[in-house]
Design a protein around this nucleic acid. Structure first.
Length: 260
DNA sequence: TTCCATGTTCCGCA
DNA sequence: TTGCGGAACATGGA
C-alpha cells in the first residue's frame, strides 16, 4: 500500500510509538530485508533511542544519534507497535525491542522493502537523487513548472519517476490525472500552462486529502477513481467508461470520456 | 493453476 | 542524456 500518504501515516505512527525510549535489542527475522549488514544495523540502533522521524517521498528516516534508520516499504511494508509477543505480525522481518518490553515491528510480506542505515536524510536524498517531496511547503507551482519544462514522454511516467518527484506511485498518479482530466499517456511537452497547473493542484489535493481521511480511519471517497479500478466501471464524475491500459509498465485506469 | 498486486532496479535499444 | 519496454525480485489472494 505504501505511497506518500501511507508513509506519512507510518511516520506519525513511528513518532507516536517509537521515539524517546532506549532500543534494547533488534531482532532480524529475515536478512533479505536488510540494506545493511546485520551487525551494522545493530550497532546503529541498539542502546540508542530514536529522537525524531522524517519523511521524504516514500522514505522514512528515524534519527538514532550518530546515524539514521532508513525504512522503505516496498509494496507491502507496514509498522506495528505492540506489547505482547504473541501480537507479532505474521510477516515481521525486523523487530525493534525497547527497554520496557514493547516492540515496533517492520512487517513486509513481499520483501520488496528495505531496512537500512544512512548517515542522514539529506545524504540519502542526494545519493539517490530523489526529486522534491510534493507536499513539502517548497513545492510551489513554479517549481513544478520548472520540473516539467524540457521533459518528454507520457505524463504518467513523469509523475511516477522518483528522481523527478518523490512519493507518488501507481494509485495516486492515476487519481491525480483523473482529477486533472488528463489522459495518462499525454505527452508532457504538449501540456498547456493551465493543464500543468491542474496537475499540480491535483497532486497536492489528492495527497493531502488522502492523508486527511486515512488519518481519520476513513476509506477513499466513492467519487475517487481508486474506488473504480475495474475495466468497464462507470466514471462517478461524468458517467464515462473506465478503461484499463498499461503505462510505464503499470496497470493504469482512466476515464475514457473526461480524461483527454 | 494462472493472473495480479499502492515498488525499484537493471539491461538493452532508440 | 532521456525515455521506454521487459524482466527480475518474493509472496499471497482471488
Amino acid at each position: 500500500m505504501p505511497e506518500l500518504p501511507e508513509v506519512e501515516l507510518y511516520c506519525r505512527y513511528f513518532a507516536e510509538h517509537g521515539l524517546h525510549q532506549r532500543v534494547a535489542a533488534v531482532h532480524v527475522l529475515d536478512e533479505r530485508i536488510l540494506g545493511v549488514r546485520n551487525a551494522a544495523l545493530k550497532k546503529a540502533v541498539v542502546g540508542r533511542e530514536f529522537t525524531q522521524v522524517r519523511r521524504h517521498g516514500k522514505h522514512l528516516f528515524a534519527d538514532a544519534g550518530s546515524s539514521w534508520l532508513h525504512l522503505h516499504f516496498g509494496m507491502s511494508g507496514d509498522l506495528f507497535y505492540y506489547d505482547n509477543d504473541s501480537a507479532q505480525p505474521r510477516f515481521a522481518r525486523v523487530v525493534f525491542e525497547f527497554d520496557n518490553g514493547s516492540r515496533l515491528a517492520y512487517d513486509d510480506m513481499r520483501l520488496f522493502g528495505v531496512v537500512g542505515v544512512t548517515p542522514g536524510p539529506d545524504a540519502f536524498l542526494a545519493e539517490h537523487r530523489l526529486g522534491p517531496d510534493p507536499i513539502s511547503s517548497g513545492f510551489r507551482l513554479p517549481v513544478f513548472r520548472t520540473i516539467v519544462h524540457g521533459r518528454r514522454g507520457a505524463v504518467k511516467s513523469l509523475l511516477m519517476t522518483q528522481e523527478i518527484i518523490a512519493g507518488m506511485g501507481n494509485l495516486y498518479v492515476d487519481e491525480t490525472l483523473y482529477r486533472a482530466s488528463i489522459h495518462p499517456r499525454r505527452a508532457v511537452d504538449a501540456l498547456s500552462d493551465a493543464e500543468v497547473e491542474a496537475i499540480y493542484t491535483g497532486i497536492r489535493g489528492v495527497l493531502k486529502e488522502a492523508i486527511a481521511f486515512k488519518s481519520r480511519g476513513g476509506d477513499y471517497p466513492v467519487k475517487w477513481l481508486t474506488q473504480h479500478r475495474e475495466e468497464g466501471d462507470r466514471c462517478p464524475r461524468c458517467g464515462g467508461t473506465i478503461q484499463r491500459t498499461v503505462v510505464f509498465g503499470r496497470t493504469t485506469y482512466f476515464c475514457a470520456k473526461h480524461q483527454v
